[in-house]
Design a binder for these strands. Structure first.
Lengths: 163, 163
DNA sequence: GGAAACAATCTCACTGGTGAGATTTTCTTC
DNA sequence: GAAGAAAATCTCACCAGTGAGATTGTTTCC
């Protein structure tokens, strides 16, 4: 990500410096995310799950039954995607749809008994994979990282919101 | 990502604490990445490009012609993916394949003249989008973030390498 | 209490990307 | 210098996920 050939632009050097810093962060962010995501994906793949599928199971495990809507927002897929995803999990008997008392448009999504015990058996191991992936950072560094990353998220999301 | 109900596990509290920290970092990393990736994708989409397509063009722009192989490693797609990606860009006349002098298995990939000027016109604007997305962090915080993220990447990649 | 705006889900055609294996060329080692 | 391992790319069948629009139900507001 070399910007040293931008000498023909009229932007002041300070701004170029800031841009260069920002691009470095973005590259580092993408690579770090990719590295961890690959480990996470490889781990859940051993149980025949994609990360999205595991995400659904995990959120239902920790938060209980939930509208499709909410699951969708939490795991960041499209409306068509959540239907497809829950269809797959339902076919495998890990999840079930229930009517939502008080709103007949909506469906609740809940773990079945087999789904419950699958997550219970997978999750601790998966958490250990994540712990190892981040073991290069001390707890203080992890706190720092969370703070910085949340700052990035916040700015990004507010920019996305305004268009 | 609530782990406070793990009281039945035999893991010591210290380890649980480390795991909880790690999970928080992983969540924050995923959300921050997603927020910036969405902005980046929306920006390049205005020119009819996906992020992967832009990635190819950008790396060729900054590093010059390159084996398909190298492009593939840099933008993190599969072998089938890079063929498909370069096919698409080639059909649009933004990129061309050339024979590699000295190795008849390999193909070089290079920007065409239109490709060159497209990237030249898009890149500064795109860099500005990234700068804005990360404007919530001071330059010192950006440096910190890069350091922490590279640490995560390194651990992740070495874990992936060993299996 | 009816109309219109809004909300939750689902359908469907499509696309970006994967991964195993095929093909061609190069490197290594005997 | 021949055989086999390794490398670079491509092919192809497949799949997860998207997004526009349809459907059904709810809320709001006159």
């Amino acid at each position: 990500m070399n910007t040293s050939d931008d000498t023909q632009t009229s932007a002041p050097a300070v701004r170029d410096e800031e841009t260069a810093h920002a691009l470095r962060v973005w590259i580092a962010l993408a690579r770090a995310h990719n590295a961890v995501a690959q480990l996470a994906a490889a781990d859940v793949a051993r149980h025949g799950l994609t990360t999205a599928e595991f995400g659904v199971l995990e959120v239902l495990y920790h938060k209980g039954p939930m509208l499709l809507n909410e699951v969708q927002r939490r795991i960041l897929v499209s409306s068509g995607g959540i239907t497809y995803l829950v269809d797959r999990l339902e076919k495998r008997g890990l999840v079930e749809r229930r009517d939502c008392p008080g709103d007949r448009r909506a469906r609740l999504c809940a773990l079945t008994e087999p789904g419950q015990s699958l997550v219970a058996s997978i999750f601790p191991e998966h958490a250990a994979v994540i712990r190892n992936a981040l073991a290069g950072l001390s707890d203080e560094e992890k706190d720092q990282a969370v703070k910085l990353l949340r700052g990035i998220q916040k700015t990004g999301e507010s920019l996305a919101a305004e268009g």
